[in-house]
Computed example of a mutant assay.
Amino acid sequence: MNQSALVWLLLALMLLAANLPYLSNRILLVGPYLKDKPFAWRALELCLLAALSLSAGMLFESHVGQRHPQRWEFYAAALCLFVTLGFPGFVWRYLRRGRHED
């Protein structure tokens, strides 16, 4: 697989991962079902999925060639991108559908 395809695959993976916490009422996506899962659980899931997505990006980068060292600015920008990609799920969960509506 070429580098361009890996970048698009990673962006699609990040888009899916960023919206999963808002689409599922299960704790950590596989745990027990909650009628109204608190936002703290969704934020924790978002952080964990962001770390998994960054790890996948590092794996893709090492697969293509040598992995470059990154500083804090890269991780701050990547986290902002991840949160931005999760905006459609946030809107659907809290703004469009309402907080307690299922």
Rank of each mutant, 00 (worst) to 15 (best):
2 N>H: 06
3 Q>D: 15
3 Q>F: 12
4 S>Y: 10
4 S>G: 09
4 S>H: 14
6 L>C: 06
7 V>Q: 08
7 V>W: 11
10 L>I: 04
10 L>F: 06
11 L>H: 02
12 A>C: 04
12 A>H: 06
12 A>N: 02
13 L>F: 14
14 M>W: 11
15 L>A: 15
15 L>H: 05
17 A>P: 01
17 A>F: 14
19 N>Y: 09
20 L>E: 04
20 L>M: 09
21 P>E: 02
22 Y>N: 06
22 Y>F: 13
22 Y>I: 00
24 S>R: 07
25 N>W: 04
26 R>V: 03
27 I>H: 04
28 L>M: 10
29 L>T: 05
29 L>W: 10
30 V>P: 04
30 V>E: 06
30 V>Q: 08
32 P>F: 12
33 Y>P: 00
34 L>R: 13
34 L>Y: 13
35 K>R: 10
39 F>L: 12
41 W>A: 03
43 A>D: 03
44 L>R: 02
44 L>E: 01
45 E>T: 00
45 E>A: 02
47 C>L: 15
49 L>C: 02
50 A>R: 01
51 A>L: 15
51 A>T: 07
51 A>Q: 07
53 S>F: 06
53 S>H: 03
53 S>E: 00
56 A>L: 15
57 G>V: 01
57 G>A: 03
59 L>S: 08
60 F>N: 01
61 E>N: 12
61 E>L: 05
61 E>S: 13
62 S>K: 10
62 S>A: 15
63 H>S: 12
64 V>W: 07
64 V>R: 07
65 G>S: 09
68 H>C: 04
69 P>S: 08
72 W>R: 07
73 E>N: 08
74 F>Q: 03
76 A>N: 03
76 A>R: 11
79 L>F: 12
79 L>V: 13
80 C>R: 07
82 F>I: 05
83 V>L: 15
85 L>K: 03
86 G>A: 05
89 G>W: 04
89 G>R: 02
90 F>R: 01
90 F>E: 00
91 V>I: 14
92 W>N: 04
92 W>V: 05
92 W>K: 10
93 R>C: 01
93 R>K: 14
93 R>E: 01
97 R>Y: 04
100 H>L: 15
100 H>K: 14
101 E>A: 10
102 D>G: 15
